[in-house]
Amino acid sequence: MESELKLRRSLLYVPGNMPSMLQNVSIFDADAVQLDLEDAVPLAEKDAARILVRKFLDGYTKRRQEVFVRINGLDTSYAEDDLREILPARPDGIRLPKADTPEVVEHLDTLLTEFEESHNVPLGHFKIIPSIETAYAVLHVFDVARASDRIVALAFGAEDYTASMEIQRTKGGEELFTARNHVLWAAKASGVQAIDSIFADVDDVEGLRRETELVKKLGFIGKSLVNPRQIEIVHDIFRPQQDEIDYALEVMEAISRARELGTGVISLRGRMVDAPVVKRAARMLKTAVSMGLVAEDAVDLSDEMIHGVL
């Protein structure tokens, strides 16, 4: 439940074999970082990158954001070594590339569970974000989404998807429309978040802005990013508008009254305020609080208030 409301507007990729980037992680405002052992690392340096990431994470104790590690695909010979090396450094989760089938996710889930059991880590500590990045994956995304309780979000990967479709990715994104919706439907139907793909052209600020506005409209709550310069733009677009904030505050006030009265449902401006409306309002306000648009003590966003009696 908690992770559904977690802010994941920006999931910044950081190349796993570059100390100059890794050691800046603590200054980035991204909601999460994805330390990359996969595409950013040449085959000959896989061993070096996983050791570097491990050593870096060992020392990065006061973490400023969620830390995911993108391991190599489970169909490669690197993935299990990746996990063996980096799990002891306790990342928050794994970004799993090429999550084409539920079996792949189940396999990772098993490996994580085994590690948790043998290393005294609370069961379920490690989260999973599967990458939906092939035509096959898009067709199986609903099953993938339900393959593990560890999944907190589905991440669409447009670069590999268009490659698998043998088409060009365009800045308009028309070619991605249906695939994005598939990912969104699976995410919403399974109660997990949906994260959109990277926007590779770092210098095209307007293009990033347009694409982020589009995917926000569709239902994505965040994007994977390739450069820290993209963080501020994406956060800006996911910034709640004042009328949205005002309405959300009214919703929380209404539900707070309802909780006092011992009822779970109440109406506001003639419309029923039920659980989904409250969750939506709470998510909005969490974003607003994190951006300084609403004072932290102005509203009660405890799980108890959001979900009723726990």
Partner: peptide, 11 residues
């Protein structure tokens, strides 16, 4: 600058 630390400082 394009350096992320420099940009953070500037903000």
């Amino acid at each position: 600058t394009r350096d992320p630390a420099g940009l953070q400082i500037a903000r």
